[in-house]
Amino acid sequence: MTLTLALQLCSVFGITSLLAFGGGNAVIPAFERLTVEVYHWLTPQQFTDSFAIAQAAPGPSTLIVSLLGYRAAGVWGALIATAAMVVPTGLIVYGIAKVWDKGHGEKPFRHAFQDGLAPITVGLILAGGVIVARHAESNWIQVALTVAATLVLCATKINPLIVAISCGVIGYVVSA
């Protein structure tokens, strides 16, 4: 791996992580733009597959960065991408955790920040879902499966793992 590539990985995942207000899923649109459209590390289909794998695998779904880094530069790419994603923000949290105490908990700006960013985060998460859905093979089975799974998840309290496995099986059986 070249130094340039290592620096690109650091900047893509390190800088994006610092803008990840609202958790990992809010930066899916940014990851897609940078890794697929700007740097061409993955095809759109590979990005969608990575998203699906990271959601289905155990652990935080933000570890999609390991898969994206792996596509860019193998095992070292995965390690650099993962470190760039968690270390800078980890240091910030460490600093905050050190100084935080209950007296600081009710500052009005904290609430304004939190409440004001909430609708924006919901918009970013929807954008991520739509971007990934558009990349997926757009046949009617895929669309129907997505709609059905969404309805089941919203209407019931079913374990999402059951939905994921069912969708995998249906995808296999119907298309085979």
Partner: peptide
């Protein structure tokens, strides 16, 4: 085909999160 099924579920989980939040 299995992955496209997983992708549908992953997108559905994202939409569910949008719905709930």
């Amino acid at each position: 085909h299995v992955l496209s099924g997983f992708a549908a579920a992953a997108v559905a989980m994202t939409f569910q999160m949008v719905w709930k939040t």
